[in-house]
Simulated assay, not measured.
Amino acid sequence: MLRIGLFLLTNVAVMVVAGIAFFILSRVFGLGGVHGPGGLQYGSLAVLCLCYGMIGSMISLFLSKWMAKKSTGTVIIERPSNATEQWLVDTVAKQAKAVGIGMPEVGIFDNAQPNAFATGWNKNSALVAVSSGLLHTMTADEVEAVLAHEIGHVANGDMVTLALIQGVVNAFVMFFARIIGSFVDQVVFKNESDSPGIGYFVTSMVMDILLGFLASAIVMWFSRLREYRADEMGAKLASRDKMISALNALRPAEARPDQMPESMKAFAISSGQSQGFSIANLFRTHPTLDERISALQKLPAN
């Protein structure tokens, strides 16, 4: 489960570049068609924002596997060199076949904390990786459940769905950022011409970042929802009891500082989430372990 952090990081970077592109095309080359007599042309702006927004999320999607490998130092198991590596490859192969997806790449990354992730731009070109800490602290049954959970993310197409949601969110962010930018340009900077002034461009780019942060609560809600779905798949492919045992095995890790790269924490199976409601919890990538276990306990035993 180490996907969303890098995805969002890449997306923000692309959105900033998109904002600069807006400035260059509109201000320097006079392109874009979003300004005309009377100011903003809302129809043209909406279409252009959707295009830019989807570009950002699609680039994030296609780069996700490469960035995950680089940031975690994942070593792909090309040829198993020991019994553990052979078991990992065989288990992932069995689970992938059970859900009808292509065989993912399988890898291990050096991290003392138990973690795992799956990523990739489509179901038949995925990567499943586990940390050295997970292999050292969990039983074979628990590791099997974690792998099944990650295969669940792949089989459910979570990354593609995330990309589509993020693309739509990007479009709304850029759209309203430019409406606010136009308002500030006219009211605060007293720009009375039909062409946008510097106030429009500066405000728009600042609002891209601020509104993007607030809108990420929507993406985080989907992230929490997908964890329940992946847990269900883990229970189906391994067993409900194995999945519950795996989540319980994460409790000691929840109390320790996370050693994952900052941009990857949203993907970690151990996420250190707090209990109860708070504004910060709106931006949680994972439900709490208690919430996930409670949901699993409602499933029939298998």
Rank of each mutant, 00 (worst) to 15 (best):
L2D: 08
R3M: 13
N11V: 08
N11G: 06
V14E: 00
M15C: 14
A18E: 07
I20S: 10
A21Y: 12
F23S: 13
F23V: 15
L31P: 00
L31C: 06
H35Q: 03
P37D: 09
L40Y: 04
Y42L: 15
A46H: 02
V47M: 10
V47K: 10
G53F: 01
G56K: 03
S60W: 08
S60F: 09
L61N: 04
F62A: 04
F62T: 02
S64Y: 02
M67G: 12
T74F: 02
I76R: 09
I77A: 05
R79K: 15
P80L: 02
S81G: 13
A83Y: 00
A83S: 13
T84D: 11
E85S: 05
Q86S: 14
W87T: 12
D90T: 14
V92I: 12
V92Y: 01
A96F: 01
K97E: 14
A98Q: 10
G100A: 00
G102R: 06
M103C: 05
P104E: 12
F109S: 03
D110Y: 07
G120T: 06
G120A: 07
W121Y: 14
N122P: 02
S125F: 11
S125M: 11
V128I: 15
V128Y: 03
S131M: 05
S131C: 06
G133P: 02
L135R: 00
M138E: 04
E144D: 15
A145S: 11
H149C: 11
G152Q: 09
G152T: 07
H153S: 10
V154K: 01
D158N: 10
M159V: 12
L164M: 12
G167A: 05
A171N: 02
A171C: 08
F172A: 14
F172L: 13
M174V: 04
R178F: 10
I179P: 05
I179N: 02
V184H: 11
V184F: 11
Q186N: 09
F189H: 05
F189L: 13
K190S: 13
N191D: 09
N191Y: 07
N191L: 08
S195W: 08
G197M: 06
F201W: 15
V206D: 01
V206W: 05
G212M: 03
F213A: 11
F213V: 14
S216V: 00
V219H: 01
W221A: 15
R224H: 10
R226G: 05
E227V: 00
Y228C: 08
R229G: 10
M233T: 15
A235S: 13
A238P: 12
R240Q: 08
D241L: 07
K242C: 11
I244T: 01
L247I: 10
N248I: 03
A249E: 00
L250P: 00
P252W: 11
A253S: 14
P257V: 06
Q259P: 15
M260C: 06
E262Y: 12
E262G: 13
S263N: 07
S263C: 06
M264G: 04
A266T: 03
A268P: 00
S271D: 12
G272P: 01
G272Y: 02
G272I: 02
G272R: 13
Q273C: 11
Q275A: 15
G276S: 11
S278Y: 08
N281Q: 12
F283Q: 03
E291V: 07
R292A: 06
S294Q: 15
S294R: 13
A295R: 06
L296S: 02
L296A: 02
K298T: 09
K298F: 03
K298V: 04
N302R: 13
